[in-house]
């Protein structure tokens, strides 16, 4: 067996193991019966329909989508001015600010989750819908911060200087040159935060697990207290959303560059 073949075999095996859980989820979601058998029997899309029919699942879906959208917007709104400031000026405490922004993502999530819980309980807002939004925004602020910083770094200085020489005010420079160049990186940062927020469990559970049921919380509860194939259908939808979003980033952005920088910045 040649080297090329053993390499293909190795990568294929890794890919198969990585894909195996996705195949199982797909099998459960498309299986006709309530209980999965081997080999699967029957084919049906009813579990996908149930996401819409069942009020509990539908509410959880709406909760998850709205929390992810709002928190990703909020995360970008924090990350954008911060990244702009760190790019625009030379300040001594820049590294400290940057580290502060990456900390929530690098530390084990249960730590941040507990911090949020202690904070919201003290503030008397434990269990409120907005606590989930704000907590997720802070928890995932790292992603837009890293991608947007990368966007700023890729701007050609000459362009900005030329515009300033021609008499553009800083506001005009930002609106006509800086912002359009950074926009794709803002979109990527938003997308990363959105997808991860959709799938996040521990922070959402700790700050409002008993009042605001997001999909991961609903899946966990139904796993423990009453199995239903609807959760697999939900999981399939999530995987498809992730594939679509990351596929779009890869199509319209430079994914290897984004990922090559993710760690370089984190360190």
């Amino acid at each position: 067996m040649s080297a090329a073949w053993s390499i293909r075999l190795f990568m294929g095996a890794v890919g198969l193991v990585l894909a195996a859980p996705l195949l199982v989820i797909g099998g459960v979601a498309l299986n006709e019966g309530r209980v999965l058998h081997f080999p699967p029997r029957g084919f049906s899309l009813q579990w996908f329909v149930d996401i819409w029919r069942d009020a509990g699942w539908f509410d959880a879906l709406i909760n998850s989508l709205s929390v992810a959208t709002l928190s990703a917007c909020l995360a970008v709104s924090i990350a954008l001015p911060l990244a702009y400031f760190l790019w625009r000026w030379r300040v001594r405490y820049a590294a400290a600010l940057y580290t502060l922004g990456t900390a929530p993502f690098v530390l084990p999530p249960v730590i941040s989750a507990l911090g949020f819980l202690a904070f919201w309980a003290t503030a008397g807002l434990y269990g409120d819908y907005l606590t989930v939004v704000v907590s997720h925004a802070i928890f995932f602020v790292t992603l837009p911060m890293v991608t947007i910083s990368l966007g700023f770094q890729s701007i050609d200085r000459g362009l900005v200087e030329a515009a300033a020489t021609m008499g553009a005010t800083p506001r005009q420079v930002f609106r006509t040159i800086v912002f359009p160049l950074v926009r794709p990186y803002i979109v990527s940062g938003f997308a990363f935060a959105f997808v991860l927020s959709l799938n996040e469990y521990i922070v959402a559970y700790m700050v409002a697990g008993f009042t605001v049921e997001t999909l991961p919380i609903k899946i966990f509860n139904s796993l423990r207290y009453g199995y239903t194939p609807v959760m697999a259908a939900v999981a399939v939808v999530f995987v498809l959303v992730a594939l679509l979003v990351f596929g779009l980033i890869a199509r319209f952005g430079d994914l290897p560059r984004l990922l090559g920088a993710l760690q370089g910045q984190e360190k």
């Binding site: 989820i25 799938n199 996040e200 469990y201 991961p216 796993l223 697999a232 999981a235 999530f238 992730a242």
Partner: peptide, 8 residues
């Protein structure tokens, strides 16, 4: 992927 989904 959520830990919940991976676990399941």
């Amino acid at each position: 992927l959520s830990e919940v989904i991976v676990g399941f």
